[in-house]
Simulated assay, not measured.
Amino acid sequence: MEIVKVIENNFSYHAPTEEQVKKYNEIREKAKELAYLLENHCPNSREKSLAMTNLEQSVMWANASVARNE
């Protein structure tokens, strides 16, 4: 994809389809399961906070992948 198309795609609104909404929800639900696992197994610490932050980022980027590329 040429860079202009990439920029236009990355900085445009992508109205979700019903199928994409299902995917977003499934991604979020699986991440939520992992978040609870981390909450229950990891001591409160900087590392746990980073794990949670990066899990949130993973969900965001996974959903962006669906939005931008389908």
Rank of each mutant, 00 (worst) to 15 (best):
residue 36 Y to P: 09
residue 69 N to I: 05
residue 19 E to I: 03
residue 27 I to T: 01
residue 25 N to S: 12
residue 60 M to V: 10
residue 68 R to H: 10
residue 39 E to H: 12
residue 59 V to S: 04
residue 24 Y to P: 06
residue 2 E to H: 15
residue 62 A to G: 05
residue 55 L to H: 09
residue 3 I to S: 14
residue 24 Y to A: 10
residue 3 I to D: 14
residue 51 A to N: 04
residue 24 Y to G: 07
residue 7 I to D: 00
residue 27 I to Q: 02
residue 46 R to Q: 12
residue 23 K to Q: 14
residue 49 S to W: 02
residue 50 L to G: 01
residue 8 E to T: 03
residue 43 P to T: 09
residue 8 E to F: 01
residue 46 R to V: 14
residue 5 K to C: 00
residue 34 L to D: 00
residue 2 E to W: 13
residue 38 L to K: 06
residue 67 A to I: 05
residue 58 S to R: 10
residue 48 K to R: 04
residue 69 N to G: 05
residue 42 C to V: 11
residue 32 K to R: 00
residue 13 Y to W: 14
residue 31 A to M: 02
residue 48 K to Q: 09
residue 43 P to G: 07
residue 50 L to Y: 04
residue 22 K to V: 01
residue 50 L to Q: 13
residue 34 L to Q: 06
residue 9 N to A: 02
residue 58 S to V: 03
residue 8 E to L: 07
residue 20 Q to N: 03
residue 69 N to H: 12
residue 18 E to C: 06
residue 64 A to E: 10
residue 14 H to P: 09
residue 60 M to L: 15
residue 62 A to E: 03
residue 18 E to Q: 02
residue 11 F to T: 05
residue 64 A to R: 10
residue 62 A to S: 04
residue 51 A to H: 05
residue 68 R to V: 11
residue 28 R to D: 01
residue 2 E to K: 15
residue 26 E to K: 11
residue 38 L to I: 06
residue 21 V to W: 01
residue 3 I to H: 14
residue 15 A to W: 02
residue 64 A to V: 08
residue 43 P to V: 10
residue 35 A to Y: 04
residue 21 V to K: 07
residue 69 N to M: 08
residue 41 H to Q: 14
residue 40 N to V: 09
residue 36 Y to G: 08
residue 57 Q to S: 13
residue 18 E to L: 07
residue 2 E to R: 15
residue 55 L to N: 09
residue 21 V to A: 03
residue 20 Q to T: 06
residue 32 K to F: 06
residue 20 Q to K: 04
residue 49 S to R: 00
residue 14 H to I: 08
residue 42 C to H: 08
residue 16 P to A: 00
residue 14 H to L: 14
residue 69 N to E: 10
residue 20 Q to H: 01
residue 34 L to G: 04
residue 52 M to A: 12
residue 6 V to M: 09
residue 69 N to T: 08
residue 52 M to S: 12
residue 51 A to C: 11
residue 52 M to T: 13
residue 11 F to W: 04
residue 27 I to C: 05
residue 32 K to Q: 00
residue 7 I to L: 02
residue 29 E to N: 10
residue 41 H to L: 09
residue 12 S to C: 12
residue 34 L to R: 06
residue 69 N to L: 10
residue 1 M to E: 12
residue 15 A to Q: 04
residue 37 L to H: 15
residue 67 A to F: 06
residue 68 R to F: 09
residue 27 I to E: 03
residue 26 E to N: 06
